[in-house]
Amino acid sequence: MKETTVILAKDNLQGLLRKLGRDKSLVAPVTNQWGDTLYTEITDIDGTELDLSKQPQASLKGFFFPQQEVIQTYDTTAGYEFTPQRHIQPTLFFGVRSCDLHAVLYMDMIFSSPERDDAYFARRQDTTIITLACTTPFANCFCNATGSGPFMEYGYDLQLTDLGDRFLVEAGRQQGEQILQAWGHFFEPATEEDVQLQYQLSLEAGGRFQRKVEVEHACRILASGEVDEQIWQQLSARCADCGGCAYVCPTCTCFNIRDAQQEPSKGERIRSWDACTFSGFTRMAGGHNPINSDHALQRRFLHKLKYDVEKHGKPSCVGCGRCVDICFGHVDITTFIEAVVED
């Protein structure tokens, strides 16, 4: 058995998080008074109840790439000087789902090219991510079809699996191993049976997906051929141009940059989320738009299921299913995949 696989009794979780939260901010899923489960910054671990039973409604995207952030301030008093703004906050994320960590690993790649994106990596640096494997996938989940869950194989600092009264804890990256070493007294050795049980649970989880989304099949079709024009038209006709899918999507990283004047000679340069599905996304000064409105959804679906497969060897949809919930026109990515496969 690997030394990096241990047991954490559930009774010890609070104590461990209290220690880990001493030199880092702590973020974990909490259900608020309105019933929304969100990854939430926790300031008082003893007075906060974590909710590990639901899928957080928003991904981790906003922690590293906020919906709006000031990337520079500028000053025109003497010349025209820009000062980069960086937000560094060492943070430990606990209870992160596999799909969401896969998305963070994808963003790490996107924001590394052609150069390191300083604003993103200022927030991302010095963070620790502890995942919770999904033994029971949620209603819209299909991460099994995108190769991004329900259990992680790499990329986590620690991965926890719920074994009932205890968690099996695996250390992936160095930071996870350091936690096991530094806080050894919270953990016990794992037995052969514990590891067997985790394996059993991962097999069962694979059989518990309620949706069967044929991602690989669709990617193969997209790699080799054109999508029937009618599919684009039908989907675009039902798209309300709200951008909700791109906003909840943990891997949608398109952005806008604009200036906001604060004083006669000072202002801020703001980066904010954008969505390629917006009709204004490609519109140029004078009103010309090189992308016709029937193809508003084309970029989003092909980027995830075709271009990223060509570029990075796998689709950049992580199967979290959030867009299924948010789209009232039912033109989320699973509808597209079904249409392509059926065609």
Partner: peptide, 24 residues
């Protein structure tokens, strides 16, 4: 070609043309 552009370095997505970024 002229396209809507925001970043100029291939990241913001605005200038997309299939798998091509006009800016880069």
């Amino acid at each position: 070609l002229e396209r809507h552009m925001k970043c100029g370095v291939g990241v913001c997505g605005h200038c997309h043309l299939d798998n091509t970024m006009v800016c880069t």
